[in-house]
Write a protein that binds this DNA or RNA. Structure first.
Length: 751
DNA sequence: GCAAACTACA
């Protein structure tokens, strides 16, 4: 270990030595010298000659004769403290330096002593770098004898002790430095040392001292980056540094004119958003930061998007424009992703065109294209996605990547076009695009969803022969598929197999198996897997408990449910939103409003906000009890005051009830609403609607929706076919049905 | 700081 803090080289002149002494610590304090500080020698020539004279005298005589050597005494008394420092440094070794230092103790003033001691420490570190303990002993000894500690000596010791994790000793040294001489750099070192070893509270205490208004060692940019790189890099949220504290700290630094750099500011915004404190992130961006950067604005936009705070998103984009913060490709990526998420594909594509026209000053990159292709596929416009892949090649010289192909394969497979998915898969190898495990999983999932579980197994083993191994997701897909095909044994076998193949199951693999077993009503087997999950070190976790509770509810075994809830309480496992939603759904489905209300109350008492599933359970309850008005009231409330936008399932329940109630007009208006809000209708939606239309015999309307289904790549299932076959053959329009079917094959799993 | 597969409850 060689300490780098040694800017003073023995060969430099006294004047520069003294000057650099002040600069050793780039102190924000002006380098004015307090009365006790060494002052530079007035005449360098004179001093350097007396330095060399003293040095030769010291080396020519025996240390025991020094006290009686009058020439030496005269020389020493004429020397400035910085000259003493130079002399000590130029002695041959630690032993000599220590001897000289001990001699000085009998004659010299404290400033010289302090600097000589610094040189002794420098020697000690060079010669026996592994014994910080010894150095500390030396320090204690000198402290007892009243030798003042120079800032530089203290700095050396602090560095050394910090490395050796001798933190209490480090603090002792820090405290021993004269308050007036303390500077920001020394304090920073101590803060860094404390943080390095996890003494967050002590570090924060010191930082708070630094932040005091009249502090002699105010924080600088180094302080803030040391502090935040440690707080943010490691996960210390559970060690007492809360978002609140972080926010207050940054504000106080800001009051001192010290700001975080872009990188850490962005990290803080991300952290606040991740912890659900986007308000704090917003305030931070607008108050505590010197100026927003593109990166921090992008992080904020991501957070707002996840929070569905679109008002602020728009506001921020506007603000960026006003402040002259140029959006970059990532900004547009976030905005396009947002539009895709809400199925506003045409607006998203418009943005792409603007980028390509050069109107925005940013060219689309491969991520932008992939986002759009994925978006198109997710709304069933996979053919357009395919065309966009061609365009990215030709018009933007962007080569499709594994992700591009994965998105397209997923699109075609989910739409039931498994052959096209295969074709694209083959094309990847031809184009030299790597196949990844995600590609494999996407293919497998597509096949499984369409009832081709055995083809999926074949494909999997074929890929394995080619050296592509599956991961936990692969097994989750297959196990889920076998469970829903009621082949629990095969699912169990796969579960055992995966460990044999060197793939350790993650929690989700367990969940899919536990879920499959509960769906099959095999609650005892499910409990066995839960204990296996615990053995595997995942602990009794809330997800498996929720799955089991759901299973017991389905079997109407409320005693088992309350038993499980008691176990959870004993284990300190708190029910979460899913737990409450499961219970709520159970009571609602049984028309037990008294208990449902109790669950709702307990949920809000626990500080859990209702989500779309919660509202769904309530709406379902009202619908099945013929209280459609109440259901609609909740529905409207969701969109406005509660910021929980209804999803497809919610619309389906309402449309189904409305149609059954012969309120087809309102059901149709909900269909428009869905389109407007970007909620995609699925097969269940259309089935409910077709039933309603059939009652009214609104044939033309039905044809319209059949076309819409085709357009949106929404597969009819056997229920659709039953309704339409009966209706259309009755009105002699079987030809229309044939055309409709040609657009889509009824998926193998449901047919 | 933006993109892909799986993920319990209505």
């Amino acid at each position: 270990m060689r300490l780098s803090l040694n800017p003073l080289k023995p060969t430099r002149s006294a004047a520069t030595a003294a000057a650099s002494l002040c600069h050793v610590s780039a102190d924000p304090k002006p380098p004015s010298l307090p009365p006790t500080s060494p002052s530079p020698s007035p005449s360098p020539e004179h001093s350097s000659s007396s330095i060399s004279e003293t040095l030769s005298l010291l080396q020519a005589t025996d240390p025991s004769s020094w006290p009686t050597n009058s020439k030496l005494q005269t020389l020493l008394s004429s020397l400035s403290p910085s000259s003493v420092l130079k002399i000590t440094r130029q002695l041959p070794n630690y032993r000599n330096a220590l001897q000289f230092f001990n001699h000085l103790k009998t004659t010299s003033q404290s400033d010289s002593l302090s600097l000589a001691f610094q040189a002794v420490l420098e020697f000690a570190m060079r010669e026996s770098p592994d014994s910080p303990g010894k150095l500390y002993e030396l320090f204690v000894q000198e402290k007892e004898q009243g030798t003042p500690l120079s800032v530089n000596a203290g700095t050396l010791l602090i560095k050394c002790l910090s490395q050796a994790k001798m933190l209490d000793e480090m603090i002792m040294v820090f405290d021993a430095i004269d308050e007036e001489k303390l500077n920001t750099d020394v304090s920073n070192l101590v803060v860094a040392g404390l943080l390095k070893w996890g003494r967050v509270n002590d570090a924060l205490k010191l930082v708070n001292e630094m932040l005091e208004p009249d502090s002699d060692y105010p924080p600088n940019s180094k302080t803030i980056s040391i502090l935040f790189s440690n707080i943010l890099k490691r996960n210390w949220s559970d060690r007492g540094v809360t978002d609140e504290e972080i926010y207050n700290l940054v504000s106080r630094f800001g009051e001192c004119g010290v700001y975080l750099d872009e990188l850490w500011s962005t990290q803080i915004i991300k952290r606040f958003c991740r912890n659900g404190n986007s308000d704090k992130a917003w305030n931070f961006l607008h108050k505590a930061m010197n100026s927003g950067s593109v990166a921090s604005c992008n992080a904020m936009l991501t957070g707002l998007e996840q929070d569905r705070d679109f008002t602020r998103m728009n506001f921020l984009v506007k603000e960026m424009k006003e402040k002259g913060i140029q959006p970059n490709v990532v900004t547009y990526g976030i905005l396009i992703k947002h539009l895709c998420k809400f199925r506003r594909m045409d607006e998203a594509l418009e943005l792409l065109e603007k980028m390509k026209d050069g109107k925005l000053g940013v060219e689309p990159d491969v991520v932008i294209y992939n986002t759009l292709i994925d978006g198109l596929c997710k709304v069933g416009r996979q053919e357009e996605g395919l065309k966009l892949m061609e365009r990215m090649r030709l018009e933007s010289k962007c080569n499709p990547t594994t992700i591009t192909y994965n998105c397209l394969i997923d699109g075609f497979c989910k739409a039931g076009e498994l052959e096209k998915g295969h074709e694209l898969f083959e094309e990847m190898s031809k184009e030299g695009v790597d196949v990844s495990v995600v590609t494999l999983n996407t293919m497998l999932d597509g096949m499984c969803r369409h009832g081709r579980v055995s083809s999926a197994m074949e494909f999997f083993s074929c890929m394995r022969q080619k050296g592509l191994k599956g991961n936990a997701v692969t097994y989750t897909i297959l196990i889920t598929a076998f469970c829903s095909a009621n082949n629990i044994d095969k699912a169990m076998r796969l579960f055992d197999e995966m460990s044999e193949n060197g793939c350790s199951p993650d929690a989700f693999v367990y969940y899919s198996l536990i879920s499959g077993l509960t769906q099959a009503g095999r609650m005892d087997d499910a409990s066995v897997i839960v204990s296996k999950l615990k053995e595997a070190g995942f602990g009794l976790d809330i997800v498996s408990c929720n799955i089991l509770i759901g299973g017991f509810c389905r079997k109407n075994k409320l005693d088992k449910v309350s038993e499980l809830l008691k176990d959870m309480e004993k284990a300190g496992l708190k029910p979460d939103r899913v737990t409450y939603n499961t219970l709520l759904s159970f009571f609602c489905a049984n028309g037990d409003f008294t208990h449902a209300q109790k669950v709702m109350k307990k949920m809000t008492d626990d500080g859990l906000k209702p989500n779309v599933v919660t509202y769904g359970a309530l709406i379902q309850a009202y619908c099945s009890n013929g209280k459609l008005d109440e259901a609609m009231k909740i529905f409207r409330d969701m969109g406005t005051s509660s910021k929980v936008p209804p999803n497809t399932v919610i619309y389906n329940m309402l449309i189904d009830s409305l149609c059954k109630n012969d309120d087809v007009e309102v059901a149709l208006s909900l269909m428009d609403d869905m389109k407007e809000k970007g909620v995609r209708a699925n097969t269940t939606t259309y089935n409910a609607l077709f039933k309603g239309l059939q009652q009214r015999n609104w044939f033309e309307k039905a044809l319209e929706f059949m076309d819409q289904m085709t357009e949106q790549a929404c597969n009819p299932d056997y229920i659709t076919m039953e309704i339409l076959t009966e209706w259309l053959s009755a009105v002699g329009e079987i030809e229309k049905l044939r055309k409709f079917v040609q657009g889509y094959q009824v998926s193998a799993s449901t047919a």
